[in-house]
Amino acid sequence: MKKKTLFLVFLAIAVIQLIVPAFMVYNNEDTLTTGTLYKFKTEPVDPNDPFRGKYVTLRYDLNSFASNESWKRKTPIFIYIEKDENDFAKITTVSKNKMDSSNDYIIGKVRWYDTYTKKVNFRLPFDRFYMEETKAKPAETVFREAQRDSLPNNTYALVAVKNGHAVLKDVLVNEKSLAAYVVE
C-alpha cells in the first residue's frame, strides 16, 4: 500500500475508534438528560472487572411478572413501566416484541419461566454500578446495615429511560448517593 492510502485507511479507522466511544457517550448522555427518571428497589453485591474496575452488582426487587405465555431463557423481554406515587417503577405489561404504547419500556433478558406460578423471571439490563475501588466493598456492608433499619425499601437505583434505552444514574441509600453514604 502506498503511504497516502495507508494513511487514509488509518484515518478511517481512527475516526471509527473515536466515533464508537463518542456515540456511547452521546447515547447515554441523551437518555440521562432527556429520559424519564425511575426508581428501582435494589440490593448490591461487590465484584470486580479487570478493565473497568470495581462495581456493585445490583439485584432488583422488580424481577418477575405474571404472564400466560411461555418464555424461552435468555430471550429479550420488553418490560413496559410507569411510575407509582413515589416515582418507583411499576410494570404495566411485558411483551416479546415492541408494542404500540406510549409507556416507557426497558429491554431485559428472560431468566426463566415458571409454569407453576405462571410468572416470567427476568434480569434488568442496568445491573452494574461502577464505584471507586475502595468504596465498592463498604457499599455492600452499608447496604446490609441500611437494610436492617426498620425503614423498608431504603435502597434504590435511579434510572433514566428513553426509547427502550436505560442508563443507571445513581444508587441511593436513605436518599443519599451510595458513594457519599460510604464515605460517612
Binding site: 466511544p21 448522555e29 478493565f51 462495581y55
Partner: peptide, 17 residues
C-alpha cells in the same frame, strides 16, 4: 481499551467482560 472502559464506567454501561 482504556477509552471504552472509562465510558462504560461513567455511564454504568452493562455487559460483562
Amino acid at each position: 481499551g482504556a477509552s471504552i472502559a472509562l465510558i462504560s464506567q461513567i455511564y454504568n454501561i452493562p455487559g460483562n467482560v
